[in-house]
Amino acid sequence: MRKLLALVLGVALLALTACGSGTPKSVGAVEPLSSIKVTPGADDNTAPKVEFDTPMKATAPGAKVIEEGDGATIKAGQDVTYKMSGYNTQDGKEIGNTFTDPAMTLSLVDELKQADAEIYDILVGTKVGSWVAYVRPDDTAAATEGESKSAEPAEAAQVLVLKVVGAKDKPAPKITFNKEEGDAKKGAEASATLDDDGLATVKIPAGNEPPADLKVTTLKEGDGAKVKKTDTVTVNYAGATWSDGKQFDSSYDRGEPATFGLNQVIKGWTQGLEGVKVGSTVLLTIPGKLAYDGSAGKPQGTLVFIVEVTKADAAAK
């Protein structure tokens, strides 16, 4: 999903703009944003007054720092908090704003860079306190069935204005494994819950009688393509042994995802991730027969993994 708002708002407000005595930093096609002027409100809870020449004709995405703040420089990987307002490009009227609401958060991660490169690039290196204008045409609208798509480029219907109010490093991610106490229960399975940041707390049932077969539980279903067993996948993961619930490996702790051919890992991963949609997080309970099978230096017996699939590429021919 390419639109910024689809990623971070989940509300009907579709556009934003900002303006002021600007700095030259810009990304993409910014000429349509050249006339924007902004008069900040009394504080961060008051919407600005925004003016621009109408109608604004924008047929390509662009973002521009209208007025740079005096706060800390924003870095890739940080969580940025912001407020915004949206305006109709035809008459300049405000569509709505979020200045009276708590600040929203946008994570400057690779997923955002791929979906909305202009917003990612304009924010990284900009300072907290900045006003940013952003416009993107709706280029996702499909032609009516039986009709050809118009040769005319799509025009943006709204323009967005962001006030960056804060930026901070993301907390160190942590997956928690808990080995429950008590007597073993026949057929008991591991379970997990995800918090708002997508990090999991895993409960491993008491005793040492794990399921005999591979168990795959979808904790969060993504909207990407289904993984093929020959794909090269990029994942974040953490693994623990069923017998004691102790974690033995975690890409989260290393601070970077892992990339590998899905047909080059243990069978439990190959079988468990085949058919999973990119963007999903799954819980894998892998019996020893599909795990490391006595490999020296590797954990033995049944293993429990949390796996977040972030990317999948077809194997090169």
Score class of each variant (00 low, 15 high):
residue 65 V to G: 12
residue 91 D to G: 11
residue 61 P to V: 05
residue 63 A to L: 11
residue 60 A to H: 07
residue 66 I to F: 14
residue 80 V to E: 03
residue 109 V to Y: 01
residue 79 D to P: 02
residue 65 V to A: 13
residue 82 Y to G: 10
residue 67 E to A: 15
residue 111 E to R: 11
residue 77 G to H: 03
residue 67 E to I: 00
residue 102 P to L: 10
residue 64 K to H: 14
residue 67 E to S: 15
residue 67 E to Y: 01
residue 92 G to Y: 04
residue 91 D to C: 13
residue 98 T to Y: 04
residue 65 V to M: 04
residue 60 A to T: 05
residue 104 M to K: 10
residue 72 A to E: 10
residue 103 A to K: 07
residue 84 M to W: 04
residue 80 V to I: 01
residue 64 K to M: 14
residue 111 E to W: 05
residue 102 P to S: 15
residue 74 I to D: 02
residue 91 D to R: 12
residue 99 F to P: 14
residue 95 I to K: 09
residue 97 N to K: 04
residue 103 A to S: 13
residue 101 D to W: 07
residue 76 A to F: 01
residue 78 Q to N: 06
residue 104 M to G: 14
residue 91 D to I: 09
residue 86 G to N: 08
residue 79 D to W: 02
residue 77 G to Y: 00
residue 69 G to L: 02
residue 107 S to D: 10
residue 77 G to E: 05
residue 88 N to S: 14
residue 84 M to T: 08
residue 103 A to C: 11
residue 77 G to F: 00
residue 76 A to D: 10
residue 68 E to K: 10
residue 95 I to L: 13
residue 71 G to M: 01
residue 96 G to T: 03
residue 68 E to W: 00
residue 75 K to Q: 09
residue 81 T to M: 08
residue 65 V to H: 05
residue 106 L to W: 02
residue 79 D to T: 12
residue 110 D to A: 15
residue 65 V to K: 10
residue 81 T to S: 14
residue 78 Q to Y: 01
residue 84 M to D: 09
residue 72 A to H: 02
residue 109 V to F: 01
residue 89 T to G: 10
residue 66 I to W: 13
residue 74 I to A: 06
residue 75 K to I: 00
residue 63 A to C: 11
residue 71 G to I: 00
residue 102 P to C: 14
residue 100 T to G: 14
residue 87 Y to C: 03
residue 98 T to K: 10
residue 91 D to V: 09
residue 83 K to V: 11
residue 82 Y to H: 03
residue 88 N to H: 09
residue 88 N to I: 02
residue 80 V to A: 03
residue 64 K to E: 10
residue 71 G to K: 05
residue 71 G to E: 04
residue 63 A to H: 12
residue 110 D to C: 11
residue 71 G to Y: 01
residue 106 L to F: 02
residue 71 G to N: 04
residue 87 Y to L: 06
residue 92 G to F: 06
residue 104 M to Y: 02
residue 88 N to R: 11
residue 101 D to Q: 15
residue 70 D to I: 06
residue 92 G to M: 13
residue 65 V to R: 09
residue 85 S to G: 15
residue 86 G to T: 06
residue 109 V to W: 00
residue 87 Y to S: 13
residue 69 G to M: 07
residue 80 V to S: 07
residue 100 T to C: 04
residue 109 V to H: 06
residue 76 A to Q: 12
residue 112 L to N: 13
residue 82 Y to P: 03
residue 95 I to V: 09
residue 109 V to R: 09
residue 76 A to V: 07
residue 59 T to I: 09
residue 97 N to G: 08
residue 62 G to L: 09
residue 110 D to G: 12
residue 106 L to H: 01
residue 73 T to Q: 13
